[in-house]
């Protein structure tokens, strides 16, 4: 058991080092082509592009580690953001945290609903959440009466979360996002339930035999993912300053899944680290910012995302194979 976790630990480290090297190389290459990229200003832009993806990626990562996937987070993000926005607009007298809590709570509820359908009816999460992707988007249109929440209604302090900094010029939303990542790390690596998520993902049939209550843990994972998508909705409102029912969060799931998969989280469950995911998000954010600075047409963006997902899958596969081989070798020794 010890040898197993050790060699896996080694593997993770190797994987993360790989992503890190990729990130550094990428920045150097872009910096050479366009020296202006290597500036503090660019760092600021990348930092601002990250929180939205990072927060959702933490939730998605947990879901994927548990051998599920949540395609509905874009719609959950939009739904939470618009409900928060409507509270800001229609009940301006209420303190801001009411809207924030409503968004996170609604996200958690929608995530829980995903989890319930998946666990009660024993259905594949990918199809269930493909359904709720459409369902939640429809409901958010109905709830908002298809009306956008205009910039004037988003509270100034919330907007300033993306602009002002408590320390070292780092905006609030960036600090919040990394705090979420830190909490996720603590939860996954240092709590019993966190370890159980890995156990469920690596072998769902064996997990109950080891005394793990699969259903509640799975529900918790989906709920957390939803809640974090809700929080991302607030970050969206803060960063872009308004919420539109037809735009906010549309297609977001692919960005997040791409980031998670680049970060070395295995789509087969059971494998993945917070550090890897964070690096994956930063890499994706850097690519996003670099494309327009390099003058690469935005047309390439989707193709690059798709290619990146596939390449990450292939790398993941070869790493897993090598991992197994080295395990076998280790056992022999």
């Amino acid at each position: 058991m010890n040898a197993l976790s050790q060699s896996f630990g080694l593997l993770f480290r190797r994987r993360e080092a790989g992503i890190f090297v990729m990130l550094v190389l990428f920045c150097i290459v872009v910096g050479i082509i366009q020296p202006r990229f290597a500036s503090l200003e660019t760092a600021r832009i990348v930092a601002l592009a990250i929180p939205l993806i990072l927060v959702s990626a933490m939730g998605q990562m947990m879901v994927i580690v548990a051998r599920h996937v949540d395609l509905s987070i874009g719609s959950i993000l939009g739904f939470s953001a618009i409900v928060a926005g409507m509270i800001f607009r229609d009940h301006a007298e209420l303190p801001i945290f009411v809207g924030v809590l409503a968004a996170i709570g609604l996200g958690a509820g929608l995530g829980l609903l995903n989890g319930l359908i998946v666990t009660i009816f024993k259905l594949p999460s990918i199809i269930v959440t493909l359904g709720t992707l459409s369902l939640y988007r429809g409901l958010l249109f109905l709830a908002s009466d298809s009306r956008q929440v205009d910039p004037q209604y988003i509270p100034k302090p919330l907007i300033q979360m993306s602009q002002t900094s408590p320390i070292g010029g780092i905006p609030w939303i960036v600090i919040i996002a990394f705090a979420v990542a830190l909490l996720t790390y603590f939860f996954l690596d240092h709590t019993r339930i966190g370890r159980q998520i890995y156990a469920i993902g690596s072998n769902p049939t064996a997990a109950p035999l080891r005394g793990i209550r699969v259903v509640p843990v799975t529900l918790l994972v989906f709920t957390i993912s939803g809640a974090l998508a809700g929080l991302a909705g607030i970050i969206y409102a803060s960063r872009f300053g308004y919420v539109n029912p037809g735009i906010t969060g549309v297609g977001f799931e692919f960005t997040v899944i791409a980031a998670v998969v680049i970060g070395g989280v295995s789509i087969n469950g059971g494998v993945g680290t917070v550090l890897g995911t964070v690096l994956g998000v930063i890499l994706l954010g850097a690519v996003n910012v670099a494309l327009p600075i390099l003058g690469v047409s935005a047309f390439w963006q989707d193709a690059i995302y798709g290619a990146v997902i596939l390449v990450a899958l292939l790398i993941d596969r070869s790493v897993r194979r090598r991992g197994l081989k080295s395990l076998v070798a280790g056992n022999r020794a």
């Binding site: 390439w300 995302y305 290619a307 997902i309 899958l313």
Partner: peptide, 13 residues
């Protein structure tokens, strides 16, 4: 399922 999510994005891209 995940391969074709990747190619879904790639092909449209």
């Amino acid at each position: 399922i995940i391969v074709t999510i990747g190619t879904l994005t790639l092909y449209r891209g």
